[in-house]
Design a protein around this nucleic acid. Structure first.
Lengths: 345, 345
DNA sequence: ATGAAAGCGCTAACAG
DNA sequence: CTGTTAGCGCTTTCAT
C-alpha cells in the first residue's frame, strides 16, 4: 500500500509550537492572527513545501472545487475539443476536472456518475451515452442538490441547463445545400442509437427533402453503429445503397465516426469520391483538409460548447439557490466546403 | 454553494437503531456481524441508494483507489489511445483515473502534479511536458513515497518504472528504409524541445545516415514547434528546405503534429506528395489511410503503452516495499507502408 | 491573538 | 455479535 505521507498542519503546529487552528488561520490569512505569526507559519510552510490535503478539505467543506466530466470517449476529436473548452474555464475559476468515459455504455455511465458524485464533485457536465434511455441516476443526484448540466446529447426528461448545437438546422441546411448543388438521391447514414442528436439531424434531413419537393425514401436512410471498430455493419449499409436501382449520388453522414469510416470503406470499394458518390458529413477532425478528398464537412464548436457548459455549471454551483429557470444554449455549426461534394454537373 | 447531501452511515445507523461501526462492518460483510443485521443494513442501504462517501474513505485510509494521469493534451490521438489503455486496466483493478493536461507547460505540469498528489491519488502516470527540464516536483513526491511512472517522455534523472517505444530504432529503421527505397536527400523535422523522444529519434536518423554512407547535413534537419496552431515556423522550415540547392526528396517527420501540419502545408504550397517530395512520419491518427496520400507512417502502440504503465503502477502501489529494482519497458513501433513514400525510380 | 474542541463520514482497535 | 472511541487533516465556533 502506498505510504505517501505529506506534511500536515499538525506537523507545522508542532514544529512551531502553535496549535493547528492557529496554523490554519495563519495560512488562510485570517485577521485574527498577528503578522508575526503569519510570517512564521507561511515561511515554514513554503520552506517545507506544505500543501493542504485536498481530501481533508473536501470532507470538511463538503465541496471539492472539482467538476466531473462524463463523455463517451476522449478518443474522439469532438469530445477532446470540448474537454479543452471545459478545462479552459474551469481552470481559471479554480476548479479541477475529473474526466470519465462511458464508451457509450449505460452501465458504465451509471457507475461513473455515481463514482463522481461520491467523490464530492461540486457539479457534473455530462453527455449521456447513446445507450442511455433511463436517467434516474442523474435525476436522483440532481434532486439531492448536485448541479448537473447536459451537453451535446440532451434529454427533455430532466430540467437543467443544456448546451447543444443546431442539429436540426445544420442537417436541414446541409441537405438543402446538397439539393441546391443538384444532387437527386441523397442518402443519410445515421446511428442505430436513439439520441436527441441523431433524431434531430434525421428530422432536419427529412424536412429539407420534403420542403424541396423530394420524397423521403427509407431505402436511402441507413442506421449503423458508430462505436467500436466494427465496420461490417456500415459496409453492408453501403453495399445495400449501391445495390439500389437508383443508387445515391451523395451520402450525408450524421456523425464523425461514420463519416471517416465510410470514406475509408469507399476507398476500399474502389468508389471514388466525389465522382462515384459524393460525401458530406459531420466531423470535427482537424485533418479534414488533408483527407482524400478534402472533406466538405459540418464542424461543431466543441471548444465553445465546453466553455459554455462550464460557465453555466460554475454559475449553478455558486448561486444554486438563486436559479429559477434553466436555459438551453444552442450553438451554430459550421459548414466548411471542400472537395468531397462539388456542384453536380 | 453546493448543497448536495447524500445518505451517510450515520443516517443508516440512526434509522436502524444501530451504531455506525456496526453499519460499516455490515456493509463490508465483516464476519463479526450477524447475517440478520447484515441483511437489514444492506437492504436499507440498497433501498435508499446508499453509496459510501469516497472522500471520507480516502481521508481515513490514506489512499483513494485513484491514479493521476498527466499528459500534454487529450486532443492528440496518441495520448487518447494511451488513456484508453490506462483506463482499461485501471478500471479492472478498481482504480479510477484523474486526467490532467499540461499543454506542454512546465508550470501547469507542476501545478497538476501537486494537485493530484494532494488529492491523495495512489500513484501517478506521467508524460513530462516538453518544456520540463527540472523534475524536482516529481522527485520530491517520489521520495515521500508516491509511486510515479513515466511513459512516452522519460528522463534518466529519476529512477522508476518507465515505458517508452523504440524511438532510436524506429527512426533508424525508417531512415534506413528510405535509403533502401532510393532516397538521397532525407530531411528530418523534429521538435524545438529537448525531450528524450526527440533526441533518440534524431540520433536514430543520424546514425542510419552515417551507417549508410551519407553525411548528416544540418541544413536538412529542422527544429519546429509542434504545439499550438502555429504553422508559420514550420512553413518557414519547409520554405528553407525547398530553397536549398539540393532540396530534399523525402521528409521524415518526428512527431504527429508535425506530420499532419507539414502535409497540410505541402498541399497549400502545391507540392505534390510523393511526386515533389515524399513523406514518412510518426503519427497515430486512425485516419492515415484516408489521408491524401495515404500516409506511410510509424505508429506507436498507445493502448499497449497505457496498459503496461498502469500494470506497473498498480504493482508498485500494492507492493511498494518489495520493489528493489525498476525496469524500463521499450515497446516496438510499427511502420505501416502506404503511399506517401514509394520506392524512388 | 491564540487555543481547545467538535465534527465532516468513515474505519478499526478495543470493550463488552 | 454490537457498541464505544479515537482519529484521518482540516475548518470553525467558542473560549481564553
Amino acid at each position: 500500500m502506498s505510504s505517501y505521507k505529506a506534511l500536515t498542519m499538525n506537523d507545522i503546529a508542532k514544529a512551531l509550537n502553535l496549535s493547528a487552528s492557529t496554523v490554519s488561520k495563519a495560512l488562510s490569512d485570517s485577521y485574527e492572527i498577528s503578522e508575526k505569526t503569519k510570517q512564521l507559519v507561511n515561511d515554514y510552510a513554503k520552506q517545507n513545501n506544505y500543501r493542504p490535503n485536498l481530501i481533508a478539505q473536501s470532507l470538511k467543506q463538503g465541496h471539492s472545487n472539482s467538476i466531473g466530466v462524463v463523455v463517451a470517449s476522449v478518443d474522439n476529436p469532438f469530445f477532446s475539443q470540448i474537454i479543452n473548452g471545459i478545462e479552459s474555464v474551469a481552470y481559471n475559476e479554480g476548479y479541477n476536472i475529473i474526466i470519465t468515459q462511458t464508451h457509450e455504455s449505460h452501465e458504465l455511465e451509471v457507475q461513473n456518475v455515481n463514482h463522481l458524485a461520491h467523490r464530492s464533485v461540486d457539479g457534473m457536465l455530462v453527455a449521456i451515452s447513446t445507450e442511455t434511455q433511463n436517467i434516474e441516476h442523474l435525476k436522483k443526484l440532481q434532486q439531492q442538490g448536485l448541479p448537473i448540466i447536459f451537453f451535446d446529447r440532451v434529454t427533455d426528461d430532466m430540467d437543467t441547463h443544456k448546451v447543444t448545437v443546431e442539429n436540426f438546422k445544420s442537417a436541414y441546411d446541409s441537405t438543402a445545400y446538397l439539393v441546391s448543388l443538384g444532387y437527386k438521391r441523397i442518402a443519410h447514414i445515421t446511428s442505430l442509437d436513439d439520441t436527441s442528436v441523431m433524431r434531430e439531424r434525421l428530422a432536419g434531413y427529412e424536412k429539407a427533402l420534403v420542403d424541396n419537393g423530394f420524397e423521403v425514401d427509407q431505402e436511402l436512410v441507413k442506421h449503423c453503429h458508430g462505436t467500436g471498430r466494427d465496420r461490417t455493419k456500415l459496409k453492408e449499409a453501403l453495399d445495400e445503397l449501391f445495390a439500389l436501382n437508383d443508387a445515391p449520388d451523395v451520402i450525408f453522414s450524421a456523425f464523425d465516426k461514420i463519416t471517416t469510416v465510410a470514406l475509408s470503406l469507399l476507398h476500399e470499394m474502389k468508389k471514388s469520391v466525389p465522382e462515384d458518390v459524393a460525401l458530406l458529413g459531420f466531423t470535427n477532425t482537424i485533418l479534414a483538409d488533408i483527407i482524400n478528398p478534402p472533406l466538405t464537412s459540418i464542424t461543431q464548436p466543441g471548444f465553445e460548447m465546453g466553455k459554455e457548459a462550464t460557465r453555466m455549471l460554475i454559475h449553478l454551483i455558486k448561486d444554486e439557490h438563486l436559479v429559477t429557470k434553466f436555459e438551453t444554449i444552442v450553438l451554430p455549426t459550421e459548414l466548411v466546403v471542400r472537395d468531397s461534394c462539388p456542384p453536380k454537373k
